[in-house]
Write a protein that binds this DNA or RNA. Structure first.
Lengths: 230, 230
DNA sequence: GTCCAGAGGATTATGCAGATTTTCTCAAAA
DNA sequence: TTTTGAGAAAATCTGCATAATCCTCTGGAC
């Protein structure tokens, strides 16, 4: 009856839910995360919450203030710029390596994940979640073959943080999304082009996302989430 | 009386100590980390230990087995190879950026950290700790200017893991260390040479460390710490 | 009238001691 | 050899006690 996977512990359940909620912007940037209310929301004791928050603080998804609790990190244009830049550095490197290690099963997984992505439209509200997951999986598939679990994990961490920025900005009607064709072009470059071409497309892809969110900052729409706006 | 920094919490104290002990190899790779004994050792309740372990598992310095506790990660030659390779990728990138952003204070910090490193000799037992710290600070100083806290943190994580491998191998008499001159040459290349030269030296530096530990694996001296040797 | 310092209570984070699962051990049965 | 199950050991969870922080209000100086 027990599956191959490990049985989950209460604290891990809270960790996963809290993690998802923060990334999806259910908690606003800068918001204080109080233990007792959270314990109530998730229906567990305060220790489980505390442990979940501790884990999340290690990946910078929550900030820890000794003796003063935890909070969702604020957002800032400078941080967003550095986040995207770092992501480009790391994913570019990972993609180069993945393409150098090219295997059939890697290529097939990419084709498959793009196909799955094609099932969703990012501009339909009820497909939003499915599109986000499929989108993430597509980008993961591109790098999967890079040969370094470390690098993959770092890319994942950056992607989570980037996703949070995108979700928060969506709250302000930023619905511009890359169409499907952009991902198709990226896949073609990865499968049939040079590493240089593919990396250029990947970088351009992320820069477009960067600029979408940047515009909202410049319009002052995200000010309430920045440190000063507290 | 209170310092500028935040007052530390018990759980954080345990986290820091445990972290240092794991990196320094006080706990052997593969060893199970039981809550109660640790609580006894550090003189705290089980919750503080649990929280510390949770944090450490997020940075992969301990492994978490749901419902079955925690353990120090085993070591393996393949993991060591990937660790060093990833470190070279990331530090090379960081060094390039740092050199491109060159500032006076950055250069001065490097000179200073090398001078401080020169005070210690890695082959004297009583200076070992001081040398390790100074060594780490020197390498950190090289990258400090790279412009991405994310990248710096990732490099730091990898450095911690690499340090653990080195400490464990030291337990088997692997005393070969890079002399001071190697670091001096690295600094000169960083300050006066091209990025290409500096990165080549940096990579060579880490490859030497890689090979020292690799040799011990090949002699079978580290077998007892690998997964199978459990 | 405004500003600041400080006291005291309210709120919140932190820590602890068991109670409650879950896993592990190991010997006997199939 | 494989299975089963009781008892021991260990991890996990809860509820409360303690300690730190935050907030409000008072009183006094200017």
């Amino acid at each position: 009856m027990a599956k191959a996977g490990e049985k989950t512990t209460l604290s891990t359940t809270v960790y996963q839910k809290l993690r998802g909620d923060i990334i999806k912007g259910e908690f606003r940037p800068g918001e204080k995360l109080r233990i007792e209310p959270l314990a109530g929301i998730y229906g567990v004791g305060s220790n489980a919450v505390r442990e979940a928050l501790s884990r999340l603080s290690a990946e910078r998804l929550v900030e820890r203030y000794e003796q003063r609790g935890f909070a969702v990190p604020a957002i800032a244009l400078d941080d967003w710029r550095i986040l995207v830049r770092t992501r480009c550095w790391l994913e570019t490197k990972a993609l180069e390596e993945a393409m150098a290690n090219r295997t059939e099963s890697w290529e097939e997984a990419i084709v498959l994940s793009l196909h799955r992505l094609s099932r969703f439209r990012s501009d339909k509200a009820d497909e939003r979640g499915g599109w986000e997951d499929a989108h993430r999986n597509f980008h993961r598939a591109l790098l999967a073959n890079c040969g370094s679990p470390w690098l993959l994990e770092f890319c994942d961490v950056l992607a989570d943080h980037a996703t949070r920025y995108v979700f928060v900005s969506h709250a302000y009607g930023n619905r511009k999304r890359q169409g499907f064709s952009e991902h198709e072009a990226l896949m073609k470059a990865v499968l049939h082009g040079t590493a240089e071409q593919a990396c250029a497309l990947l970088t351009a892809h992320y820069m477009k996302t960067f600029e979408n969110v940047e515009a909202l900052f410049k319009e002052g729409l995200l000010e309430e989430f920045s440190d000063s706006g507290n």
